[in-house]
Write a protein that binds this DNA or RNA. Structure first.
Lengths: 316, 316
DNA sequence: TGAGATTATACTTATCCTGAGCATAAGGGA
DNA sequence: TCCCTTATGCTCAGGATAAGTATAATCTCA
């Protein structure tokens, strides 16, 4: 038995693999993602024989499209489009998704591709100016109705508990990392266009731009990963220009995390970790007292390998 | 151009996908993994059309092989076997790896499958009784030689710095999460059988059982993921029997992490997080004072969703 | 029966980290 | 000059953490 499981000896179940990229940049304190097809899809291309590896495949066509080499890239998730075609005999398609970090100005926009703000797709994720009104006005009541629509009381309770936890309702703390869980909850409750499209039920009442296939789910995965990662790896710097002020750095972090941080504590953490060094120059054209310019100390990556960045992004 | 990147319109580059499992159990304070082929391979099977999704595909054959349903499963990584065949025209093969957690006693061993201690494959990863002698005696000097063999002084320095960081040499702290980095370093320095096999250079001087293909790399990925995860998610309990003492729980954590923890602090953290509750019974057949038996409070998973477990596994 | 070994469990202490706020500095513009 | 804005330095309280001390309960063996 085990032998049969190890090798496809009888038939070769051939499939095709797509590479999907969540390519992120932060421009003037707003997180952007690269989109195609009128901002309804993430860039994606087929994995071809010419590619030596999955990552080189991804890099190849992202570079072809944007005109710039991809810097930081990490794999997100692999999933099979299960039975989307309905035909069990049709070749399966696997999607392998990646998170890439770059800067908008480094990219020459191709005809079809352009940058979109990621909060257009997830308006409920931006808590920098407090909890968005649509959570209290739309999401919470709709999820409560969805919870109540369950048959058994225990399921009702479980549903509402889940909703309250993921969206930080009822005095619960907002957890900015639960991006995917929130998306999946809205999908399950059929409150977003993709759910209505796929399940032919519900009503797309929650604002936010939809995407083809499950690209918005992939985007949610990418955002969640990035929000988690900036807390313990110095990846923000991939998104920053060569020189920046500490406030610009803070604004980028806040843009990604979707929440604000305590300024003084942010500076303290950044400086005590020796992640940055002064360039000696000062920022020009600013309001208020001019700020020192800093640059990322690339040395720390080597020095501490994967040591870890701390950011004041825990509770609050 | 962007259009061409979105769809494989001309040729369909068909590939096959393998599902590979790192199936972990902890028995009597020793972490085990399920192996086949005389303990030289991880169980793996092809993804077939009959499988509704990747995870169900994985579950299907793991259950067929072990006779028990798989509990906790999470995806690890997807990679392409780049040009292993050397023939660029041969169909590519993609491996999608998963981490699964179970208990040894739940599994009926199939003929070919059995459990192996994971430190047989990574003897340098077990620091429960202090840093293993082979690091100071074999790994460190060999890596130093490898560093010195570089041409430029800067590469020499970078190599040694990397070695010292990943293996915690020269008064650096041991970081138990760098399992994959350590394996890849040993591979790069051609000190393990797989490297000698693939690159036809070097000498396999570092102890530790080898595996076919890159299964040992996948195993390293799984161990690293698990070591990271037990610190912030209550996954250890997937590996525990229904009732256990706090010391048994601690021993399991230590087995996985490969390091010891402070007993009193461990108990305090576990209890204050309300992860467990007393069963009322006491452990029988023990040396010393009998311990209370505890069970995992499954409620916390729902209550706090992904809230987080804390374990005293940071520095020290 | 009692000492020693072994494990369980309760408490204490010093230190570090974190969140939050106060205060001052340095620019520009009305 | 006053005010607004941002930069930057410093303090402080509370909580978390690491590490140690102390005591309790059981078994084994002399």
């Amino acid at each position: 038995m085990a032998k049969a499981l190890r090798k496809a000896e009888t038939s070769i179940d051939a499939i095709t693999a797509d590479l999907v990229a969540v390519l992120v940049a932060v421009t003037e304190g707003e997180p952007k993602i690269m989109t195609i097809a009128n901002a309804t899809a993430l860039p994606s291309g087929p994995f071809q024989f010419g590619h030596r590896s999955l990552q080189t495949g991804l890099r190849a066509w992202v570079e072809a499209q944007t005109g710039h080499p991809l810097g930081y890239v990490e794999q997100l998730y692999t999933f099979a489009d299960h039975g989307r075609t309905g035909d069990a005999r049709a070749p399966h398609r696997i999607s392998i998704s990646y998170l890439g970090l770059t800067r908008e100005d480094q990219v020459r926009e191709a005809s079809e591709a352009h940058w979109s703000g990621w909060y257009e797709y997830f308006p409920w994720e931006d808590h920098r100016a407090g909890s968005p009104a649509l959570i209290a006005k739309i999401v919470a009541p709709r999820l409560r109705a969805w919870a109540k629509s369950a048959e058994s009381a225990s399921v009702q309770k479980a549903r509402w508990q889940r909703a309250a936890i993921t969206f930080g309702i009822d005095d619960r703390a907002w957890n900015e990392e639960l991006v995917l869980q929130r998306y999946e909850l809205l999908y399950e409750a059929s409150l977003i266009p993709e759910a209505v499209r796929d399940k032919r039920t519900g009503e797309a009442v929650v604002p936010g731009r939809a995407m083809i296939s499950d690209h918005r789910r992939i985007l949610a995965t990418g955002i969640a990963r990035l929000r988690a990662k900036i807390k313990y790896r110095p990846v923000v710097f991939e998104l920053m220009p060569a020189e920046f002020t500490l406030l610009q750095l803070q604004r980028s972090v806040e843009a990604l995390a979707g929440r604000t941080v305590h300024k003084q504590n942010f500076r303290r953490l950044i400086e005590q970790q020796e992640l940055v060094e002064e360039t000696g120059a000062m920022a020009a054209e600013t309001v208020g007292r001019p700020a020192k310019l800093f640059r990322f100390r690339h040395g720390v990556v080597a020095e501490r390998a994967v040591a870890g960045t701390k950011l004041p992004l825990s509770r609050s």
